[in-house]
Design a protein around this nucleic acid. Sequence first.
DNA 1: TTGAAAGCGCTAACAC
DNA 2: GTGTTAGCGCTTTCAA
Lengths: 335, 335
Amino acid sequence: MAAKSVPTLEDVATRAGVSRATASRVINADPRVREAARVAVQAAVDALGYRPNRAARSLVKRGPDSIAVVVPESDERVFSDPFFSGTLRGVTQALASTPLQVVLVMGEAGDDDGRMGRYLRGGHTDGAIVVSHHQDDNLWRVLEQTQLPSVFLGRPYSEQATMPYVDVDNAAGARLATEHLLARGCRTIGTITGPPDMSAGRDRLRGWEEVLREAGRPTDLVESGDFTAAGGAAAMHRLLERSPDLDGVFVASDLMAVSAIGELSTLGREVPGDVAVVGYDDSPAATLSRPGLTTVVNPVSQMAGRAVALLLRLMAGEDAEPEVLSTRLVVRESA
Amino acid sequence: MAAKSVPTLEDVATRAGVSRATASRVINADPRVREAARVAVQAAVDALGYRPNRAARSLVKRGPDSIAVVVPESDERVFSDPFFSGTLRGVTQALASTPLQVVLVMGEAGDDDGRMGRYLRGGHTDGAIVVSHHQDDNLWRVLEQTQLPSVFLGRPYSEQATMPYVDVDNAAGARLATEHLLARGCRTIGTITGPPDMSAGRDRLRGWEEVLREAGRPTDLVESGDFTAAGGAAAMHRLLERSPDLDGVFVASDLMAVSAIGELSTLGREVPGDVAVVGYDDSPAATLSRPGLTTVVNPVSQMAGRAVALLLRLMAGEDAEPEVLSTRLVVRESA
DNA sequence: TTGAAAGCGCTAACAC
DNA sequence: GTGTTAGCGCTTTCAA
């Protein structure tokens, strides 16, 4: 009753009364095998429940075949914020001319030393693009340690991370938005931020602050919305409670902006009449929302394309420099 | 200028003037190495741009670490139909108590011998759950050939596929829906189907047909909507063109049903006053739509849970039988 | 603390 | 057609 662990090709061959090579041929559908041998091997495979060890196989085969898009977020968020689908589409498109498969790896931030880290260390992919990286996920450590070629989409939070990244100038984008609010005559301008533990969140807040400070305005009307719809609405609510005369708000993502507008209308405020709002992303929702959302363009798919380009360089053994894309404001009705 | 391909541990060791074993120790942060050796190896690693070959590593290490959710659909579809996010959530939850990471692998159907097949054959994951399988993707062939433990979520189209699956009784669900339409007095009942090359599409159509046939009604009011929003609206349009006195329609997915209702209202029909509509899935959209959508429950997350259970059995070397879950109708306002 | 050597399970010449 | 023989690149006893 010895628990003869997992059967190997050797076992199959022995049982079928052939050599390992022949067994291997049968399994790989090589035509030059006698029917009898084929049958015997097949029977042995079935009897033993043999399954090829893929590590061994790829050890001898070689060649890259996939890259991972790593998102330290819950699947819920990944599927609800169009930012991610946009990114994924961009990556997929950029990889269209290569034989590389994209795999999406999601997981709660902070679990990086759990399954995500283990997976990444497992070396199943030939490169990684990290998308919504947070301050305390140590993804960059794991990646650095395993030397897996990887690039960040969005500047990594930690200055220590050495891998290249592609980012958009988030602070500049926020400045554009805030200046627009100012130019249109808003007096009391708040902001709904992204998570403070992400560089995009911080940078956008900084841009808003800078403009307001330069204009000699107060910079205390700040509420965090965590890049979720519910968070955006709640933050809008708090903002209005703190400052009922609020007449302009810069929201750090369209997803939050749309729900903030909803909250505003629930609270009896008109947009842009009473409160002007500017979003960030220029996601599909921006066009569809009523009123149309004035927003900062986040060139997601362009960024994804650049990230892939950098990654491909890295995978080829060349090195790659960070890239920062510029952005612009799209004016619609909301501000 | 010889292109000394990828450096191996051997190269590192040689360059650092130590043995392979010591180099390995340094790389795996084994404490018992002299500082000098550590430094030398580290330098060699940097100089050579050495990266461990993960296949070799896992060949000697062992142990499963991930399963793939394979979806032969474009990322666009995957991100727009809540069916997929529901499934993924279910899988993730079911795997919560294990150390397994989920990776999502998407790709155009039919590309199965391209990157998707190559990836699957590459043996990067220890199991696979195939969702949304189509008639002519030969995924099941690939999976059978590589002996990768795998289960289908939704009965595979081909009878030849031998892997276990979990499915819901789609025909019974469709029957429930159609009977409801009949019971509520509809006289002219059409259907908007899913893709004919998927078992779910066929089965739901069959259920609708059966009920109508048993009731002695015509079964020709069939239009395909391909499980997309745009397809649903277009199909609705055609249906109404063909039969302006249509007063009931069974739509094979909520996503299509919601847009069909939109089309209906564009065309000046009231739901359920003029036309009653029943959807399929009971997705979040069903509750949110106006009027609320009467629909057949597709127990996505339960199915995902069962699929994971079967897969885990397979991975443990046990075998697993197909499972078919039952379903029920949720009556809201639309019919 | 280090090296030598023995595999991990598989595929691919190369001979027969 | 089929078996023999080398490795693929790495980790890990086992001695030294």
